[in-house]
Every structure is written in structure tokens, then in C-alpha cells.
Amino acid sequence: MKNLLKSFLVLLAITTAVPCFAQKANNTLTEKEKKQGWTLLFNGKDFSGWRQCNGSGMPANWVIEDNAMKVFTGEGRQPGQGANGDILYQNKKYKNFELSVDWKTSKMGNSGIFYYVREVPGQPIYYAAPEVQVLDNVDASDNQLANHLAGSLYDMLPADPKTVKPAGEWNTIVIKVKDGKVTHTQNGKKVVQYTLWSKEWDELVANSKFKDFPGFTEGIAHEGYIGLQDHGYPIWFRNIKIRELK
């Protein structure tokens, strides 16, 4: 009995000596991240820095929910019908950067993350900007083509579907753009790589739905805004952070 009590006390001492590490709060940066040059594009409280693409204010179908941006089906619309609610971060255009975004989709959800956004009056956000797909790979109606699945360069290059967490769970996508060389890293695994303004890029465009989009055939911009899509489904975004690369 004495030995058993001694063992229990030793185990208790070891257990209480192990420090408890609090999970990092969402929409914040560690000191290490700050030193690495990361900045937040979303503060978790409001839409500071964001506005409607080709507009001046925030669309009505965006709210803050549980410290995340949420876009939902607009009033009078059906699921899958956007309400002209594409948004962009207006404070700066970016050229070489690393962008990290956490996203979560509802069942059947569909959306996109855009970079090098060039606003074209009367046109949607995807008219002149590459799209990184956000999707419920299991139940979305747009899950029939490999290059339409989550993490893909939409309608051009497919991402590995095994890297995607299901609807209702958070995913992290990191988009790195440096001198035209682009990678998508999904939940820690590199899933797509390509080079803008190259022969490869021209071939990708020619074999995609964008082949007749002047925004692509004239050549996408060499810098632009970061944007998020309203595709008519509930989607959440948080921990949106970026660091510029030299």
C-alpha cells in the first residue's frame, strides 16, 4: 500500500509539472510570425479593410460569426446564386507574397479565394483573377471535375482531394506567389504548383473556361487585391494573414 501511494504521488507530481500550453487565439499573430513579416487582413471583429468588389461598402450577406467572416445565401436568392457579394481587401495590392487562410464550408458549399484581383466594372471577381477553389468535395454540385475540387487552381489544375477536411471542419490553405511561381499548400501538403505568364500558363488558360475571358486572354495583372467569393452558400473564413516576399 505504501509503495502504491508513493507511485501515485510521483505520478501526480509529474502530471502537475507538465506545463499547459494555451491554444493560440484565432485572428492573432505570434511574436515569431510578426518577426517573419506576417500581418493580419482580418481582425476577427469587423470588416475593417474589406469592401465589395466594384463597390464601396460591405455586401449585406456577410456577417461576423464566432470570430470568423461568414458569407451566406443572399436575400431572395437560392443556394448557388451569389448576391453580388464578392469582396476584396482594399488597403493594398500585393505582388510577391505568402497568404494563409482558414476556411470552412457548409454542406454543398462552394466559394473561392482570389489573388491579383483586377476590378472590371460589371464583371465578377473571377473575370480577371486566378481562383483557389473552396468546396465541399463530397456534396457540392461542382465536384465532378478534379480541377474543381478544394485547393485546386480552379478549372486548370487539380489538388489532391485526400488533403481536404469535410464540410463543417476547418481547412488551411497557403498560397505562395513569388516572381510568377505559385504553390498551393493545403493542410500542410503542397497540392498545386504552376508558373504565371509562361507557356504552361497559356496552355492552362486555353484549355479552361477562361479561354474567352478578356481578363485572362489579355493577361492577368502582375499585382492586385486579395478577394473572397460569394457563390450563394454559407462559408466561413478566419486567420487571414499575409507576408510580402522580396
Rank of each mutant, 00 (worst) to 15 (best):
V182W: 01
A159L: 02
L9G: 04
L145I: 04
K246Y: 06
K34W: 06
G227V: 15
L157S: 14
S152R: 05
N61I: 14
P234I: 09
T15M: 11
T183Y: 03
K32Q: 02
P158G: 07
S100C: 07
Q123K: 15
T195S: 10
A146S: 15
D142Y: 01
R77F: 11
N27K: 00
I64G: 13
W50Q: 14
K181H: 06
T195N: 08
T185E: 13
G76K: 04
F72H: 08
V132E: 09
I226K: 04
W236N: 04
N26C: 01
K181G: 02
S56T: 13
E223K: 14
D102N: 00
H231P: 08
N67W: 00
E119C: 11
L135C: 06
P214I: 07
Q90F: 07
D179K: 11
R77H: 07
E65C: 05
A13Q: 03
V63T: 13
P19M: 02
M69R: 15
I235H: 00
P121I: 01
I220P: 05
D139A: 09
F216W: 13
G188R: 05
Q23T: 11
A25R: 11
L204T: 10
F237G: 08
T73Q: 10
L196N: 00
E75Y: 03
H184E: 05
S152N: 05
K211D: 04
E218L: 14
S100A: 10
I64T: 13
C53S: 01
V177M: 00
L204E: 11
H148S: 06
E200L: 03
A129K: 04
A128K: 09
